[in-house]
Design a binder for these strands. Structure first.
Length: 914
RNA sequence: GGGAGCAUAGCUCAGUUGGUUUAGAGCAUCUGCCUUACAAGCAGAGGGUCCGCGGUUCGAACCCGUGUGCUCCCACCA
């Protein structure tokens, strides 16, 4: 079969994925093996996979494939998240484009559209996972709004309510005026913005002369120095909600105002001046307006001083009737107009630029509005304790640990109650049932609710209405590791008992509070056990300038396009090669190119080995002589110095590579255990490219159209198979393809089990290193002296017999293009000399040599060695070093000294002969 | 304001409890090669005050202190 010039991934990747699916390799059922379980962090059904997902899914696939090949029953559960607020926003937008207003739809009609949306985007996500090669068990695909999942969420809500851990109440929450729903604290992102601080004059009145907005002359009353105070605010549009102004009781400037009131400008409402330690005398004007409905601090002060709450905003962020003015106008429009009016009427003392932090809704990017609202909450303190303990005790290991442990602890120790109700339709509807008076009960369905209600309130045949709101999406995803195995809806089933706790959770560090911490809470509450043993946090994927990927910047590549361009293996390689755990990854297409080149390298190595197929020779000796003669250059008129007659010599290459392979197999295993996947990939990459292709294959490569020793051929094929297996978890497609093209196979690589690797022979490895060093040094000399690659040399070795080159001559002569190798005790005239490992190599070219180049090089080496020697001698002449250091260390230094001295001597000898 | 992390070659990063040569890799750069698997390649090379300063030690990229510069998380100063 003719192999193409370059590797073409597209067809091959598709073919193997289909084959794996058909063979059902990714399916998992409980059995006697040890499970290795991963649940996918369910992507939102709002869109397509981005580079962050790609990194996460690749990491998971590597871990799960490695486990599958290591005797585990590997189970990777795929799925998607209904993402209540994000999806609802998208669906509303999509409907708007079609000219449909959500308000004109019934709940049922809307949900129908939402489910259609889910089908469409869920499929896109799943097809991307397939393209990427994710070895998930498709029969276990779970969606957070599946029937069983929905029921599980309701069950948990009811249960927590009955335990007193879920409650309903009026609290200050964060409100999203675009999505028109409550948010949890975690869904608000604070960002630095440049705002303005407005200094507004409030007229002072004695409490006796309160004139509540009735005078027609009030607007014309101009403030003067002694009849007003100045208050700084960022939000002039909320002054209509002021119910007091507040100063610090220790602030002498405002002492005289005790018992007085001020008039809120524009609406002429008198409010009392109160005093509270909370106010910072030194900030702004030292006096603060209190607007309990629109600021958490003001709310708290309001509670303390029994102030009224005047909510001047509607749910959509426009001013409400309570504001009296600019009613119905957007808060930001109203702000501008109010500032203008204040200015016009002389109430604005000054305005200045101000750096501040504003809370934005994570989903709609609108400025979140603090608002008093009746919502449902989860009590977090109690649930948090076991979750904290599990991590502190090391029952759950976080990677990289040092970075996130502190964050995790701090959050759990200071956690506040979680607002879980959302004023949306897309999600699990809250199972609370109300009568007309607003009395309510919580139950799994209407029937049960009625029973409980009738009991509780001694009523009969009451009409109950279910809560309109749905639950926060994270209130469903925190059950994910349990409910994908129906651990909540059908507790104690075979799956949950076998697969739970799962092995490792791979996710972004940005959802440590949203999801990771809460999953641990839910797991501890409902299974009395951690949901996973390890957490592997990946960093954020950024572009190569370090910017976040975003649609606006256009720096977020399309996954499918990348796969089309480079192949899935190359994408996986590119994203893994430079992604140390927990660090941000600067995504650069250049690394995908590197991945593609690596694919091609494998492909070409395959082509080379295929050339040898059918040309194996059983007789080592004869062939070896032939090969040696091929290298013999008749022009130089020399005999081939040593015939590679012994088996040992030929076997050096295979034995050396066997050692390298074992060594790397052991190293890689350790790296997996430490979750250092990118290190593992680098190690395998270098083993394949450098050790296997650049060294080993060159060493065993027969001459043009020459036969190859059968033993070497078989070993080579075996090595290549082992390499493909080692690489398979990272690059599953090409490795499977190469594995099958190498020779007929009865099983697929995907399920081939790793064998235990032998301890490498260190002596041979060391010999290999010396050989490589010698080859490199001679090549360097050839290069520097402009000896053409095709030009043959004669090599004379002056050895101190610490290293034995006889077994290596065959390889050595081939690699440096030497016509002969001989041994000498004297220096060789008209030759280039180099020193490697205290042995001297003379390179004879047959032409006159340029002594200057050589002299320069030798002098440079000499200088370096002398410097080195001085540093070693300094150490050894330090009495305290000799007294205190360990014997091994001193011996080593002595050896270093002796070695350096020997080398210096050899170089000086060489220099003197030049 | 509180906390965490980072700082090593042009870039991205390794560097395992302080001592195997005056620090390693990949990418990029430079030089020479269309050598019969591969120019998406081969052979070779150059490149670093290990952020500054101080300390501990016989010995520091590594430990301690301090300064500087980045990054992230948390927090209710109008």
């Amino acid at each position: 079969m003719e192999l193409s010039k370059n590797y073409n991934p597209a067809d091959i990747e598709n073919k193997w994925y289909q084959h794996w699916l058909q063979k059902e390799y990714f399916k998992s059922q409980p059995d006697k093996r040890e499970p290795f379980t991963v649940v996918i962090p369910p992507p939102n059904v709002t869109g397509v996979l981005h580079m962050g997902h790609t990194l996460n899914e690749t990491v998971q696939d590597i871990l799960i494939r490695k486990a599958r090949m290591s005797g585990h029953n590997a189970c990777w559960v795929p799925g998607s998240d209904h993402a209540s607020i994000a999806t609802e926003a998208k669906v509303v937008g999509m409907l708007k484009e079609k000219g449909i207003d959500k308000n004109n739809l019934t709940r049922e009609e809307f949900l129908k559209y939402a489910f259609e949306w889910k089908e469409k985007y869920g499929d896109i996500i799943y097809s991307q996972l397939k393209k990427l090669g994710c070895s998930v068990d498709w029969d276990r695909t779970t969606f957070t709004m599946d029937d069983h999942y929905y029921k599980a969420v309701i069950k948990v809500f009811v249960d927590l309510y009955n335990k007193g851990l879920v409650y309903r109440g009026a609290r200050m929450i964060n409100w999203d005026p675009v999505a028109k729903t409550a948010l949890s604290d975690e869904e608000v992102e604070y960002r630095e913005v440049t705002g303005k601080l407005y200094y507004i004059k409030y007229m002072i009145v004695d409490s006796g002369q309160l004139t509540v907005g009735s005078e027609n002359n009030s607007d014309n009353r101009q403030p003067t120095t002694d009849n007003f105070i100045i208050i700084a605010t960022q939000r002039p549009e909320t002054i209509m909600g002021d119910t007091a102004v507040c100063a610090n009781p220790g602030d002498e400037r405002y002492n005289h105002l005790k018992g007085k009131s001020v008039v809120v400008p524009l609406i002429n409402k008198a409010v009392p001046i109160i005093f509270d330690e909370y106010v910072d005398k030194d900030f702004g004007t030292g006096i603060l307006k209190i607007t309990p409905a629109h600021d958490i601090n003001d709310y708290n002060i309001g509670l303390k001083h029994n102030l009224a709450v005047v909510d001047t905003l509607n749910d959509d962020g426009t001013l409400s009737n309570a504001a009296q003015i600019y009613v119905g106008q957007d808060r930001f429009v109203a702000r501008k107009k109010i500032v203008e009016e204040l200015k016009g009427k002389g109430f604005l003392a000054k305005e200045e630029e101000y750096q501040t932090r504003l809370g934005f809704s994570q989903r709609t990017n609108s400025v979140a509005e603090p608002k008093i609202s009746t919502q449902w909450f989860v009590k977090m303190k109690e649930l948090g304790l076991p979750a904290l303990q599990a991590v502190i005790d090391g029952d759950i290991n976080i990677h990289p640990g040092e970075k996130f442990l502190a964050t995790y602890k701090y959050w759990l120790e200071n956690v506040k109650d979680w607002c879980i109700s959302r004023q949306l339709w897309w999600g699990q509807q809250i199972p609370a049932w109300y009568d007309e008076e607003g009395r309510f009960v919580v139950a799994e369905n209407e029937e049960k609710a009625k029973k409980i209600f009738n009991n509780q309130y001694s009523t009969n045949n009451v009409q109950l209405k279910q809560d309109e709101d749905v639950l926060d999406t994270w209130f469903s995803s925190w059950l994910w590791p349990m409910e994908v195995f129906k651990g909540i809806s059908k507790p104690d089933n075979d799956d949950i008992n076998y697969y739970y706790p799962t092995s490792v959770l791979v996710t972004g560090q940005d959802i440590i509070f949203f999801w990771v911490a809460r999953m641990i809470m839910a797991g501890m509450e409902y299974k009395k056990e951690k949901p996973f043993s390890d957490v592997y946090f990946t960093g954020m994927v950024r572009d190569k300038q370090g910017r976040k990927m975003s649609k606006q910047l256009g720096n977020s590549p399309d996954l499918l396009e990348l796969i089309d361009k480079y192949g899935a293996d190359a994408v996986r390689f590119g994203i893994m090669i430079s992604s140390p755990a927990g660090n941000d990854l600067l995504f650069d297409e250049a690394s995908l190119e590197q991945g593609r080149n690596f694919n091609n390298k494998l492909w070409n190595a395959l082509k080379l080995i295929k050339l040898w197929q059918g040309r194996q020779s059983e007789n080592h000796t004869t062939e070896a002589i032939l090969i040696a003669q091929m290298n013999f250059n008749p022009e130089l008129g020399m005999m081939p110095m040593v015939l590679p007659g012994s088996l040992t010599e030929e076997n050096f290459a295979t034995e050396w590579f066997e050692g390298r392979l074992s060594k790397v197999q052991i190293e890689v295993d350790i790296l997996y255990k430490q979750f250092k996947l990118s290190e593992a990939l680098k190690t395998i990459y270098s083993l394949i490219w450098d050790d296997f292709c650049s060294w080993y294959l060159e060493w065993v490569k027969p001459g043009f159209e020459q036969p190859i020793d059968e033993h070497i051929y078989n070993k080579t094929v075996y090595f290549f198979e082992q390499l493909m297996q080692l690489l398979h978890p990272f690059m599953p497609f090409i490795t499977e393809e190469v594995y099958h093209l190498l020779r007929e196979q009865t099983e697929d690589l995907t399920i081939k089990q790793f064998e235990k690797s032998e301890k490498p022979n260190n002596k041979i490895l060391q010999q290999g290193n010396i050989l490589k060093e010698v080859i490199t040094a001679i090549r360097d000399v050839r290069n520097k002296n402009q000896i053409k690659p095709k030009e043959k040399i004669k090599l004379h070795i002056q050895t101190r017999h610490e290293s034995n080159y006889e077994d290596l001559e065959y390889i050595l002569s081939k690699q440096v293009n030497a016509a002969s190798i001989s041994y000498t005790n004297d220096s060789i005239d008209n030759s280039l000399a180099i020193i490697v490992n205290k042995d001297k190599f003379y390179i004879e070219t047959g032409k006159a040599i340029n002594t200057i180049v050589q002299k320069d090089q030798l002098e440079k080496d000499l200088e370096h060695l002398k410097g080195f020697l001085i540093s070693v001698e300094k150490k050894l002449s330090n009495e305290r070093f000799v007294k205190n250091a360990k014997d091994e260390v001193i011996d080593l230094e002595r050896k270093k000294k002796a070695d350096a001295e020997t080398k210096i001597k050899i170089i000086e000898e060489s220099l003197s002969t030049l």
